[in-house]
């Protein structure tokens, strides 16, 4: 398999704090690649660096043959990198269908004057967008919610709408930021199925996730981060057996035992191999 995303020496500092330090990573085209690590390991920072929401302090991001390190977010999105957000970012007052239609923005071209004249080109494009949006909605299993206001949907459905918005334009790479956060067991299982379906449709996926029962069955390859550094890289089986990884997670768990917090306990439970 060819490499779609090739990251080398990527760093991001916040003041004196190194959130991501000298990380290298390759994502193979057509794979589902997991990015895991204890809390504060820099996973979301990595994702933001790849999507362009954060600028890197050093390093290089090569994507599909282009050096995109200095590209702004919207250009990367039009070039084929789409994402979801850890805390949902839907266009809350638009309908579900409209949300997904916005996802087609980079793939469509009609300008203001087309809309003013209702040109045949514009009509055709609108029809095509609507159709594609309905398909994407159907793909995530929410066809019946098309005309609902997005902000009024339950949490789990909002996650799916966000995914539909990200995949409607058939991106080359989909970045999923904790898609299973806040989902129950059955919903997590459906998320695994959905990730597999997305992969089958030809979209490469980079998955940041805490739930090991989502990561392990869906990923072809996993990169582990710890304190902003790359700790390990390999297949799920290799990662499971990797002594450094076990140490990082167990160490994290022991530390948390000493000072338990509500959010970290279930995560530690998931992490134990």
């Amino acid at each position: 398999m060819s490499t779609l995303l090739d990251i080398s020496g990527l760093s991001r500092r916040f003041g004196g704090l190194v959130a991501v330090g000298d990380v290298g990573m390759e994502v193979a085209a057509g794979s589902v690649h997991g990015l895991i690590g204890p809390n504060g390991a820099g996973k979301t920072t990595m994702l933001n660096l790849i999507s362009g929401h954060l600028a890197s302090s050093a390093g290089k991001i090569q994507f599909d043959g282009s050096d995109i390190t200095r590209w702004p977010v919207d250009r990367r999105a039009r070039f084929g990198i789409r994402r979801t957000f850890q805390n949902l970012r839907l266009f809350r007052e638009m309908t579900v269908l409209e949300n997904i239609m916005v996802g087609m923005h980079g793939q469509t071209h009609c300008e203001i004057w087309h809309a003013l004249l209702r040109s045949p080109q514009q009509q055709a494009e609108e029809t095509a967008i609507t159709e594609r949006a309905r398909e994407a909605l159907d793909f995530v299993g929410l066809a019946h919610l098309a005309d609902m206001q997005a902000g009024a949907l339950p949490y789990g459905s909002q996650r799916l709408v966000e995914i539909a918005r990200a995949i409607v334009a058939r991106p080359k790479l989909l970045l999923l930021d904790e898609p299973a956060a806040g989902l129950n067991g059955a919903e997590s299982q459906r998320m695994v199925d959905l990730i597999r379906m997305i992969r089958a449709s030809g979209v490469t996926v980079l998955l940041v996730e805490h739930h090991m029962d989502v990561v392990m069955p869906s990923c072809d390859c996993i990169t582990v981060l710890n304190y902003g550094r790359r700790l390990a890289n390999g297949s799920p089986a290799e990662i499971r057996a990797h002594p450094e990884v076990i140490k990082a997670y167990l160490g994290g768990r022991l530390k948390r035992r000493a000072k338990p917090t509500q959010s970290s306990q279930p995560e530690a439970a998931h992490a134990s191999p």
């Binding site: 999105a77 789409r82 266009f91 916005v102 923005h105 980079g106």
Partner: peptide, 10 residues
């Protein structure tokens, strides 16, 4: 509604 999400949509 959401500038970040709009940018992420291209």
């Amino acid at each position: 509604q959401d500038e970040e999400a709009a940018r992420a949509s291209g």
